[in-house]
Simulated scan of single mutants.
Amino acid sequence: MSHLHNDRNYGCRIKTELVYKGYSMVVLENEHFRLSILPGKGTDIIELLHKKTDTDFNWFTYLGLRKKEAAFTSFQMQYEGGWQEILPNLSGEHLHNGVKLEAYGEVSLSEWSYSIVKDDPEEIAVKFENNLRSMPLRIEKLISMRNDQAGFDIQETLYNTSTAIIMLDWGHHITFGSPFLQPGTRIELPDSRDAYRVPEPKSPGGFEVFPCDIGSYRLINPQGIGAEIKWDAGVWPYLWFWRDYGESTAAPYYGKHFNVGLEVFSSPPASLLQDNVIKGTAICLPPMGEKHASINFSVIN
């Protein structure tokens, strides 16, 4: 793991060797935006801060980020909100080809290595890597930021490191919450669907899945502050749209939350990875094959 780079307090800069609540943390920032990532916890993104308006688009659960404890190791017990990489399965804990798959995939629960690829005042880039245990896969994620950019870019490559055919699901579990998310926030969904308006607290929530030919959506709150996500719809052709406005007092959130999830995945929800294999939505990686994808986050203001 390489951390050597030039200390700098202007332009684009990177902060490494940080520890937050027991997890290693990397910060990428410029004069417009700050991005905080936890390679010690699945490369979770826990800060999406637009500096000019002091707006953090990130959402936290009512418990927030907790230190890892032996009694609470599952995705849900460690879930703090924010943004997670999900691989190689989207469903609950189960066996696939005789191998135990953790709920929502192991990469969101494990530590990634990282190295600094570019460190200039005009542009920075950090590469994060994870070699999976449950499948012969390696994922490389390059996160970059330019000095004129209020946002960031992610370029990813997924490698099959074996001579076997590997079936998998993959995607990004992205959530937004208050104070950015407010009643009246407009959500512009892909494929020319009518804009959705976020209701008042204690309204009923919901869950829908949209097949997406166009990989983009936007959220804009009543103050005109917003975010746009663009992604490779050819790799992640399904948008999962879930929302919790505190109407339900059932577990796991007990009426405490006001948030939406707008998550991009390779498949619709399924109980087992094998279900998506049978339906033909799972990604098929040939022996020693690879898959490339990208995603961009931009502030609207």
Rank of each mutant, 00 (worst) to 15 (best):
R138K: 15
R138V: 13
I139M: 13
E140C: 15
K141E: 06
S144K: 02
S144D: 05
M145G: 12
M145I: 02
R146L: 10
N147A: 10
N147V: 11
D148T: 15
D148R: 04
Q149D: 10
A150H: 05
A150V: 09
G151V: 07
G151I: 03
F152A: 07
F152Y: 12
D153P: 06
D153Y: 08
D153H: 11
D153M: 12
I154H: 03
Q155N: 13
L158Q: 05
N160H: 13
N160Y: 02
S162H: 07
A164P: 07
A164C: 09
I165V: 15
I166M: 01
I166W: 04
M167S: 11
L168A: 06
W170G: 09
G171C: 02
H173G: 01
I174T: 14
I174R: 06
T175M: 05
T175C: 08
F176V: 12
G177Q: 04
P179R: 04
F180G: 00
F180P: 00
Q182A: 12
Q182R: 10
I187T: 12
I187R: 03
E188I: 09
E188R: 14
L189V: 00
L189T: 03
P190T: 01
P190E: 05
D191T: 10
D191G: 10
D191Y: 10
S192Y: 13
R193F: 07
A195W: 01
Y196H: 09
R197S: 15
V198Y: 03
V198P: 03
V198F: 03
V198S: 06
P199D: 10
P199Y: 09
E200M: 02
E200D: 02
E200R: 06
K202M: 05
S203V: 00
G205C: 11
G205Y: 02
F207P: 06
F207C: 14
V209R: 02
D213K: 13
I214W: 05
I214C: 09
G215Y: 09
S216Q: 13
Y217C: 12
R218Y: 01
L219C: 09
L219S: 05
L219T: 01
N221D: 06
N221I: 08
N221E: 01
P222Q: 09
P222M: 04
Q223V: 01
Q223F: 12
Q223S: 15
I225E: 10
A227K: 05
A227C: 08
A227T: 12
E228T: 13
E228K: 14
I229D: 00
I229H: 03
K230I: 14
K230D: 14
D232T: 11
A233L: 07
G234T: 10
G234I: 11
V235R: 06
V235Q: 08
W236V: 14
W236I: 15
W236D: 15
P237S: 06
P237F: 14
Y238F: 12
L239Y: 05
W240K: 11
W240L: 14
W240R: 12
D244Y: 01
D244F: 00
Y245F: 15
Y245W: 09
G246H: 01
G246Y: 04
S248T: 12
S248P: 07
S248C: 02
T249A: 09
A250T: 15
A251C: 08
A251I: 00
P252E: 04
P252K: 01
P252L: 07
Y254K: 06
Y254A: 05
Y254C: 01
G255L: 04
K256P: 00
K256F: 07
H257W: 04
H257Q: 13
G261P: 02
E263N: 07
S266H: 00
S267Q: 09
